[in-house]
Nucleic acid binder design. Structure first.
Length: 114
DNA sequence: CAGCTGACAAAGA
DNA sequence: ATCTTTGCCAGCT
């Protein structure tokens, strides 16, 4: 594939994938980055999330780090907001970490089977 | 204008 | 097994 991905498009790709995350499921920054062909750009996914506040359809709360830790919870309306949103979707969160993360994990590279 | 930061992750420089 | 360093690159200071 071409690595001529425009950075702006990269952000858009991230948003698109995020919108595809089913309710009650979660994924990781690395998984999204990897799916987009930028496995080492997981930090950029986080940046995209930071800018996702302008995109209501982007469920940033369903994106956690690779160990299921809610690292970005402080960027929401409140520290408990992210956890609450997840619990509201049936995702059990304990001590800022998603319980059974591996089971609820939604891998775009697999689910989207591109 | 130049350098630092950061919602991460993988390798070991 | 733990801690440190590097990669990524747009946005801020």
């Amino acid at each position: 594939m071409h690595y001529s991905i425009k950075t702006t498009d990269f952000f858009q790709q991230v948003y698109k994938v995020c919108e595809l995350i089913p309710e009650g499921r979660i994924t990781s920054y690395g998984a999204i980055a990897s799916y987009l062909g930028a496995a080492r750009s997981s930090r950029m996914v986080g940046w995209a999330m930071n800018a996702s506040h302008n995109y209501p359809n982007v469920p940033a709360h369903r994106v956690v780090n690779r160990i299921g830790l809610l690292t970005g919870k402080f960027h929401f309306e409140g520290p408990k907001s992210m956890q609450h949103l997840l619990e509201n979707e049936g995702v059990e969160v304990l001590n800022d970490q998603v319980v059974e993360f591996e089971i609820l994990f939604w891998d775009p590279a697999v689910e989207l089977a591109l």
